[in-house]
């Protein structure tokens, strides 16, 4: 499969992707894509499972609920290997001591464990994915920014689908939270869920975001009402998603939304940019509300780069430049 995707990337002249997909096409496993020093460092640190009581409690609650009832792989792992739950629990606790714990991580860790790695290697891969490959940004407050980036990517690369979903009031926070928080492990058939992790380990730029757009552009979206799509979307995606999503994602350029996910200072506090509006305003999520800040175009590196391209300009007389809303 990866060989075909690589050929397609070569045909389209996608140099950045070709190098990264090449390793996958040659059959590299996840551990082959991780620098040995990082792998060893995380393996050695495994065993430090100290995390606070609240986190411990959340992991305790989530581990028994980490399974996919309609899929065959996790029940198998659970039923055949009774040590899986303690393994998953230890792995999540060790991860929490490095980058915290959020719901969704349990499914990512379970997917890695299901590939039959020894516990320390599974942890090293999990930690490398979250920490070094920065997938931890898919959790907590930055998730909202990622959803914003996804929305812009969809609007840019699949305007018809974006418009259809908008018309149905089916916004990304109604479906893509699960996609990103679990790195697709809950919403897709196992081969595609593993492919999403392949892309991340191969350092394909913005892999989750591009893959999400790829899924939507490769699956027919022909619902007519909010109710129809809300009730059927998850099953529809699980049934219809295929490897075509991997080809479709190649079309997605991420440069158009590089401003998104940035931390931005506003007069109301620091937040993250979650949307770029056509009227020239950036939408900044502050955690307790949203600020609308006029955008300054990103400076090309002719001179010193502007460290904060979203810095508000001087307020023109009489112009209401920023406003807040919830």
């Amino acid at each position: 499969m990866w060989y075909d995707v690589l050929c397609e990337a070569e045909r389209r002249g996608l140099e950045k992707d070709v190098g990264k997909l090449g390793a996958l096409a040659r059959g590299a496993r996840w551990e082959d894509l991780v620098p040995k020093s990082s792998l060893e460092r995380y393996k050695k640190s495994y065993g430090s499972t100290a995390c606070d009581e609240d986190t411990e409690w959340r992991i305790f609650k989530d581990v028994p609920r980490t399974h996919l009832p309609e899929d065959s792989w996790f029940p198998f792992v659970f039923s055949q290997k009774q040590d899986t739950k303690p393994k998953l629990s230890r792995l999540l606790r060790a991860g929490a001591s490095l980058f915290g714990y959020s719901q969704g991580m349990n499914f990512v860790a379970a997917l890695i464990l299901s590939e039959e790695y020894d516990e320390a290697t599974a942890f090293a891969l999990f930690a490398y994915l979250l920490q070094d490959l920065r997938m931890k940004l898919l959790y907590g407050r930055t998730l909202a920014a990622y959803l914003g980036a996804f929305s812009v990517a969809l609007r840019t690369h699949a305007p018809e689908i974006h418009q259809t979903l908008k018309r149905l009031d089916f916004e990304p926070q109604l479906y893509a939270v699960e996609w990103f928080s679990t790195l697709f492990s809950v919403c897709l058939p196992r081969p595609l869920a593993l492919a999403a992790l392949d892309l991340a380990f191969a350092r394909v730029t913005d892999a989750p975001l591009r893959f999400a757009v790829g899924i939507l552009t490769s699956v027919p979206i022909d619902f007519e009402t909010f109710e129809d799509i809300a009730m059927c979307f998850k099953k529809h995606i699980r049934a219809q998603a295929s490897h075509h999503a991997l080809f479709a994602m190649l079309d997605v350029e991420t440069d158009a939304f590089r401003e998104l996910q940035r931390a931005v200072d506003t007069p109301y506090g620091r937040g993250t940019c979650v949307d770029l509006r056509p009227d020239g305003f950036a939408v900044v999520d502050l955690g307790w509300g949203r600020a609308y800040v006029r955008r300054v175009p990103v400076q090309q590196p002719t001179t010193k780069a502007d460290p904060n391209p979203l810095r508000p300009p001087a307020r023109p007389p009489g112009h209401r430049r920023r406003r807040l809303s919830n």
Partner: peptide, 18 residues
Amino acid sequence: GQRLNSGRASGSKPGCCK
């Protein structure tokens, strides 16, 4: 229909998985 939806009327297309 309302934003983030309090309920659009169901259209002619039947639901697929109720």
